[in-house]
Design a protein around this nucleic acid. Structure first.
Length: 425
DNA sequence: TCTGGGGTCCTAGGACCC
DNA sequence: TCTGGGGTCCTAGGACCC
């Protein structure tokens, strides 16, 4: 019997994490805000039930949320990342292969037993995760990634399925596929679904049965792959080992608009330090850097600008990147613009293992080693004592541009100071 | 007043080569 | 007056994802 593909995800993951560390939130209507407290990016089941929408700007709903006594939290990625790691470790031990797809999602493979049914395996896994992590998961099973995603969708929708569904063992597969709207199919976005609907394709079953020629002409192998996955032919393989990052992007919206180079430099500098430390963590070097800035795209005189610079020698040295980025920043900066967002991208990443030897080294090897050690030392200190204790350069002006996080949960499991205490009486 | 952040993959078209 | 053809590599931008 062929292996089945399973898709596993945490239900309302961010909301569940907040509920897990603060049980007073369990059963409550709860929403989580994006960075800068911008919009709503997650809701507890209870908040979802009364129709609180996803992706809506917070300020538009602030009063309503207050009136309805809905709890609000700023997103706390350190917390979600930590819980995600524990979840993935547990899943790894219970699948044959596992691909960690996002902070709250994974694809796995598992051999079907003789009677084909995987419900018991799924049930056991769900309770294991709930006991150990305190998070509810859903499990979708099928022959391909796209089908397992659809199964998971069905698992969540039908309450009697108790969080597990396997489209690989049902007799009336078409009935289920008929119920899946085409824009809910993984890989079908806004553009494609508009075209599909115009061509008379409205659900997953019809997409599966579209002529190969028609979909290939319009969407190439990307479209064809979706059709074939729906047919049950595995086209998108499981990637167990995450391939090396190809780029690193650090960008933030400012808490308040800024219009001066000094503050912009300060922000860009912070982003570079975050990015280069990630780079060193991944044991990679970058050979091109982009700086970009933008005003609000909700105003008439929207302005954005970006500039890229190639580096002669691939590096992960904070000082080099800092210097380059500030040169770029100076070039793209324009006064009298209210900037609300800026960021940096490091591209063309390569493994630092194969660092090319410089033919005519400007600095001797000992000096280079010292710089490497210094960078790593800073990373270690920051890791142990909280981010940004140490950095390069100096700036004592107030960082009023920092993103807002007014509703951050106070309980943390990633910082010993904030661990909840339990008294043993 | 206030609208997130970080990725990947694919493709078309330009640059360049013989 | 006539003005090749075919290939590779790179890049920017679109589309999509969570």
């Amino acid at each position: 019997m062929r292996k089945a593909i399973v898709h596993i995800d945490g239900n309302n993951f961010y909301a569940s994490c907040e509920q897990m560390i603060d049980p007073s939130l369990i059963g409550k209507r709860l929403v989580i805000l994006s960075n800068n407290d911008g919009c709503i990016i997650a809701r507890s089941a209870e908040a979802r039930k009364i129709g609180i929408p996803m992706g809506i700007p917070y300020f538009k709903l602030k009063n309503k949320l207050n009136q309805l006594n809905i709890k609000v939290r700023s997103s706390n990625y350190a917390l979600y990342g930590d819980i995600s790691n524990r979840l993935m470790q547990l899943l790894k031990r219970n699948c044959e292969e596992l691909e960690i797809y996002s902070i709250d999602e994974a694809f796995g493979t598992i051999k079907r037993p003789k009677d084909k049914y995987l419900y018991q395996w799924g049930k056991d896994l769900r309770s294991l995760v709930y006991q150990n992590i305190g998070i509810a998961i859903s499990i979708g099973i099928g022959e391909t990634k796209i089908l397992s995603k659809i199964s998971n969708h069905i698992a969540k929708k039908i309450e009697t399925n108790s969080g597990i569904f396997d489209i690989g063992v049902v007799d009336n597969k078409d009935n289920y596929l008929n119920q899946i709207k085409v824009d809910k199919v993984w890989g079908v976005g806004r553009k494609m679904s508009t075209w599909l609907k115009k061509s008379g394709v409205t659900n997953a079953r019809e997409l599966r049965d579209i002529s190969s020629k028609q979909i290939k002409e319009k969407y190439g192998i990307v479209g064809l792959r979706i059709k074939n996955e729906l047919k049950g032919n595995l086209c998108i393989p499981i990637k167990e080992t995450s391939s090396d990052r190809k780029e690193i992007c650090v960008s933030r919206s400012f808490g308040y608009p800024i219009d001066n180079l000094q503050e912009l430099n300060q922000a860009i500098g912070k982003y570079i330090l975050i990015a280069s430390s990630k780079l060193r963590e991944n044991k990679q070097l970058t050979s091109a850097i982009t700086v970009f800035i933008a005003t609000s795209n909700h105003t008439k005189d929207y302005f954005k600008s970006e500039l890229t610079e190639k580096l002669n020698i691939p590096t992960s040295d904070s000082r080099v990147l800092l210097k380059e980025s500030l040169t770029l920043t100076k070039k793209i900066f324009r006064p009298y613009r209210n900037l609300v967002k800026a960021g940096i991208i490091l591209h063309k990443l390569q493994s630092s293992q194969y660092k090319q030897n410089i033919i005519f080294p400007k600095q001797n090897i000992q000096e280079e080693l010292n710089i490497e050690r210094l960078n790593n030392l800073i990373d270690n200190i920051n890791q142990r004592n909280g981010k940004n204790i140490l950095g390069w350069g100096s700036s004592t002006i107030e960082e009023s541009w920092k993103p807002r996080r007014e509703k951050l949960s106070y309980l943390k499991i990633t910082d010993i100071e904030y661990l909840p205490t339990v008294s043993a009486n």
